[in-house]
């Protein structure tokens, strides 16, 4: 037998199917259940409900796109969309500019760096409810900053932004920038500190002015960090709810309503599940369109086997 075996071509060992590590699979069960039931299941459920006529209680009839038609002619929803777009653009832009400036100025070998850093970032540790309530009080038209300024004789300055339907979104932006600009500062400062010290030396030898080094050399290097900051800020824009509830309650009237609040109110107070879920689906689609390519490029594609 053995002689025969050795004279023949050695057969390739039967390709053993790699055994699935059972314990590892079991460990992933909780996460898998959450993904399946909540992230996939609940999402589908919500989308399905948006095609029903559900009001106080869910039913499973099918009314096509009629909830969406109603939604798109709903003044309150349209206002909330308008608000979130305006808020989002201003908030992200202001945080980026202000945060970048703070990071650059802190990077100038200043005294008390740690103190400034701590001051710029502390609002980020607090909740949007706290942020909203503080700014509601600071901007209080009868007793807040406006009152103080008027008593000082500066009667021409009006700070009634939070109660004026034309400016209330700007007031929200102000409070949100107070809360979030430090985050951008922290991210970009980490980026600035990561810039090769030799690069700064080379620029000095070449006689390049400091501002020019920042705009032409450093800023492009911060690209990935800026993207990260934008993504984080964008998530908080999409979720914007607490701040509005605490600071303005969506008012005056519906002047500072936002989609997240529209959904919550229609779910829990106005008992219009069909309309609420269709608005939630609209939010979902918007976010998916904006973020799916980014997530794909970043996480799904680069699967280098380790």
């Amino acid at each position: 037998m053995t002689t025969i075996a050795t004279t023949e071509e050695p057969t390739a060992p039967a390709r053993r199917r790699r055994r699935m590590p059972l314990a590892a699979a079991i460990a992933l069960v909780p996460a898998a259940i959450i993904v399946a039931v909540v992230y996939v299941g609940c999402m589908i459920w919500t989308v399905r409900l948006s095609f029903t006529s559900s009001r106080l209680l869910p039913n499973l009839d099918f009314v096509g796109f009629s909830q969406y038609e109603r939604l798109l002619s709903n003044t309150r929803f349209l206002t909330s969309v308008e608000n979130i777009v305006l808020f989002g653009v201003l908030f992200i832009a202001a945080c980026l500019v202000f945060g970048f400036l703070m990071a650059v100025f802190i990077d100038q070998r200043i005294r008390g760096e740690a103190l400034f850093r701590t001051i710029f970032l502390y609002p980020y540790s607090m909740s949007f409810i706290v942020t909203g309530l503080v700014w509601q009080w600071v901007l209080n038209p009868t007793l807040g900053v406006e009152d103080t300024l008027h008593k000082l004789g500066l009667t021409f300055i009006d700070v009634d932004w939070a109660v004026n339907r034309d400016t209330v979104v700007y007031a929200l932006v102000l409070a949100a920038v107070w809360h979030g600009a430090g985050l951008v500062m922290a991210i970009l400062l980490a980026g600035l500190r990561g810039v090769d010290a030799d690069l700064w030396k080379a620029a000095r030898v070449d006689g390049i002015p400091t501002w020019r080094v920042y705009t032409s050399i450093v800023l492009p290097l911060l690209g990935p960090m800026i993207v990260t900051a934008v993504v984080l800020l964008a998530i908080s824009v999409a979720r914007l709810y607490d701040l509005v509830v605490a600071m303005t309650g969506g008012g005056p009237g519906i002047a500072s309503d936002v989609p997240a609040k529209f959904v919550m109110d229609h779910l829990f107070e106005r008992s219009n599940i069909g309309l609420a879920t269709s608005a939630a689906t609209m939010m979902l689609i918007t976010v998916a369109i904006v973020l799916a390519p980014w997530v794909y490029a970043r996480y799904v594609r680069p699967q280098v086997p380790r």
Partner: peptide
């Protein structure tokens, strides 16, 4: 990895989508 991808996407989705179900 598919599960992880779903999980990450889930992180970006507004909570309002999940709340009622």
């Amino acid at each position: 990895n598919v599960m992880f991808g779903c999980l990450l996407l889930g992180a970006f989705i507004p909570y309002q989508v999940f709340i009622y179900p």
